[in-house]
Structure formats: structure tokens, C-alpha cells
Design a protein around this nucleic acid. Structure first.
Lengths: 140, 140
DNA sequence: GCTTGACTTCAAGTCGACTTGAGCCTTTAT
DNA sequence: ATAAAGGCTCAAGTCGACTTGAAGTCAAGC
């Protein structure tokens, strides 16, 4: 497959594919003149990369997982991420409940509402970095 | 309170407080010489900002919420974010289950495991940008 | 009176994951 | 034969939320 086909099949722009190749996340198996040739299996690989990204792995972490240096490093890492996700999920649930409440709360000032204050305490504990916002292009 | 007290009370570095002030997220009420003076209420405000960040609002969005131009813009926005969080939570739950499964799965290749493939499909739908990783400093 | 240390401003740097641009080379259609 | 389409490389730019650095100001203690 050439890069455009891979781009279409995966939904990723060609620039990203080149970038991933440079990072060692995918390989092209040869060239046709200048042009990269990919085997069809790269699609699954890309799906796996998407999956990893969605689960919160960085590209570097994903790259490591693809070159198994140790025996069970992957499994340990996977479990650890699952645990991490678990915590994140609980935080988000508290957050969601708080938002929903705040949206309908009658109290003139949220600080007078005990429910809200409880939420505030939860949130205070979990200050983690947030994703960048999506760009227009990525939204449609 | 001076900036160091606020920093201690809020857990945020002074640089962040200056940055927030510049962005209009907080106000200092006067100076002692050059030095900013803050009223104690800034602490609650900062907690609210933290809360907003944790819930996925950008600083700009938070700033907007603090200057209510419309009547119920806040409530609508809060509800919308709650809905958004709800979707995110479901995705993360699928992701977590998938990771947990992958960590113990016996299949030599995950692509041969139906459970994993199902997860892969879910993940494929939700490619959203991920947070930057935390820095050392922020971890401890 | 002079150092020290905490504050100040303003500009520039950082992080990760890409994207964009400039300038070149090839294949394909006219 | 020539031009458009599309791939190539490499460097630089982008995004948001801060952080860092240089250079200056100021009050307090010796």
C-alpha cells in the first residue's frame, strides 16, 4: 500500500504516518522509487497505537511496548494503566455529578451549597493536566 | 495576603498566580509597594479554577464563566460539560476493561482475541487528544 | 550603608504530538 | 515534452498552560 491508502484506511494524515515512522512506531517495508510502501498489517498497528493513545499512553510508552525488552513489562504496564484509569474515572464521576448539580443548584453562591463544597474538595485533590482542545479540523 | 501566602494556601506556585492574574482569572486588590496584595477570597476562587480545570474547562472558558455576559450561559455550559464527561467516562471504562483484559489475556497475539478486538473498535471511535504527561515535580 | 532575599516585569523557553512550509524529485496525463 | 499531482526531506511552527531567566526594586537586618 502506498502512504495515501494507509492514510485513508487509518484516517490519519500522511504527515502523521511519516512522523510515526520516524519515531519507530510503524515501518514501511521498502520503497517504490522515493515512495514508501506499507504492508497491510500497518493498519492494525495503527489501530493499536490509537488504542494506546486513548488509554493514556504516550507515543514513547507505546514505542517501548512494541519492542519487548523484558518479559512481562507489558502486562505490568497495562495493569498499572488500568489502575490509573480507574482513579481517573472516579474523579471524573465526582466531577460530572458536581457539574450536573451546579447546573441546577439554586444557591445564590455555590460556596453556600454543601454538595458543591464536597465536590470542591474532591477536585482539589486531583489537579491533573488537561488535554489540549481539539482543533476545528479534528471536530468534523 | 501576599503572593507567597496565597501560593502556600493554594498549592500553586507564585508564577502561576501572576499568570492567572494576567489572564484575568484572579485579581489582586492593590499593592504594598510593588507587591501584590490578595484578599482571602482568592483562595476559593483558585479552588474553583482548579475544579474547572479538572472538569475539562480551558482557562479561557473559565475566564468567561467568571464574567457572566449572558443570563444562563453558565448553566448550559455546565450541563454540556457534564454530558461530555459522561461520554468520556464511558470510553475510559471500556478502555480500562480492555487493558485489564489484555494484561491477563493468554492469546499469543491480541488480535486473535475477540474481547480485545471489541475494545479496539471502541477505542477506534474515540481518538481524542491526550494530556501531556506530568512532570516530576508535579508528581510528588 | 549595604547585603540579602523576596518580590517585581517582560521575554523567551518548555512539553508532546503533530502540522506546515519550502524546495526538490518522480510519475502520469496531455 | 511539459506541466500538474503528489511523494519526498528537513526545519520550523503550533497549541495551551505554565515555567524560567535576566534584570530591576524594595524593606529589613547587620
Amino acid at each position: 500500500m502506498d502512504i495515501t491508502e494507509v492514510a485513508k484506511a487509518s484516517g490519519l494524515p500522511a504527515s502523521t504516518l511519516r512522523f510515526y515512522e520516524e519515531k519507530g512506531l510503524i515501518q514501511s517495508n521498502g520503497r517504490n522509487g522515493l515512495r514508501r510502501l506499507f504492508s497491510a498489517s500497518v493498519i492494525e498497528r495503527l489501530a493499536l497505537i490509537s488504542l494506546g493513545r486513548s488509554a493514556g499512553f504516550s507515543l514513547d510508552e507505546i514505542a517501548e511496548m512494541f519492542t519487548p525488552d523484558g518479559p512481562d513489562i507489558n502486562r505490568a504496564l497495562l495493569s498499572a494503566k488500568a489502575d490509573e484509569l480507574d482513579r481517573t474515572i472516579e474523579e471524573l464521576i465526582a466531577m460530572r455529578d458536581g457539574l450536573r448539580h451546579a447546573a441546577v443548584c439554586k444557591a445564590p453562591n455555590h460556596f453556600e451549597c454543601p454538595k458543591f463544597l464536597r465536590l470542591l474538595r474532591v477536585a482539589g485533590k486531583n489537579r491533573f493536566r488537561q488535554p489540549n482542545k481539539l482543533k476545528e479540523k479534528e471536530l468534523k
